[in-house]
């Protein structure tokens, strides 16, 4: 395998460059996926069929906490990648671990939020609005859940195998994924929660 040392580790082999580009294209597809969900949400958001509306069920506190947790995790994974570029494996692993903990915290709050919704009579089957709301949030939540496992696997691999072009590449791609989830959340926060509460 040819390793080009003038480039960062995650870009250093041709295979790594292919993977990064491929992942960007995958994120393009993910954008379309969430765009479709958002478009459906905007179409259906006032079709509550007598069930609860967004303004009735959204609560700012848990949503704000979730937002802060996820935004911070996006920052810490950025620090993790920075540490990786400096070759500081220990710092990188710590930042990755913090990221995952924050992500798990986010997920905890989201599950709590879902349980509250269902208790308030806003279940998946209540109306078109609740169906698309829970599906959109759930799709994002499922992405985060997948990310937690993925991140954990990467931590284990970096720990065992050290910072090689391969593990660096995986970590970098994972960070792209995590940032992407953060961006999606910003849209969810602004256009679902804030708009819904107003």
């Amino acid at each position: 395998m040819k390793i080009d040392n003038s480039l960062p580790l995650e870009y250093s082999t041709e295979e790594n460059r292919l993977k990064v580009l491929g992942f960007w294209i995958f994120l393009g597809a993910e954008i379309m996926l969430f765009a479709t969900l958002f478009a459906t949400y905007f179409t259906l958001f006032d079709r509550t069929a007598g069930g609860p509306t967004g303004a009735e069920i959204f609560e700012i506190t848990p949503v704000l906490i979730e937002t802060i947790l996820l935004l911070t995790s996006s920052f810490t994974i950025g620090l993790g990648i920075h540490a990786m570029r400096l070759g500081n494996k220990k710092a990188m692993l710590s930042f990755f671990a913090i990221t995952l903990l924050l992500g798990a915290g986010f997920l905890g709050f989201e599950i709590f939020e879902f349980v509250t919704y269902v208790h308030e009579g806003a279940g998946l089957q209540t109306s078109a609005f609740t169906s698309i709301l829970l599906t959109t949030l759930g799709t994002h939540g499922a992405h985060v859940t997948l990310g937690l496992f993925w991140g954990l696997f990467i931590i284990l691999q970096v720990k065992k195998r050290g910072l090689t072009p391969e593990t660096a590449n995986k970590s970098f791609i994972f960070s792209l994924y995590w940032h992407f989830l953060d961006v999606v959340w910003i849209f969810i926060f602004s256009f679902i929660y804030l708009k819904g509460m107003m």
Binding site: M32, L44, T48, G51, L124, Q125, S127, A128, S131, I132
Partner: peptide, 28 residues
Amino acid sequence: PVLTVTLAMGTMDRLFGTNFFTTDNGGM
């Protein structure tokens, strides 16, 4: 990805009782 989402919503309507495309409960 549009198809993925669409089929997922169709599946949920049929198997999980959601209301994306139904004729009542606000579906369209």
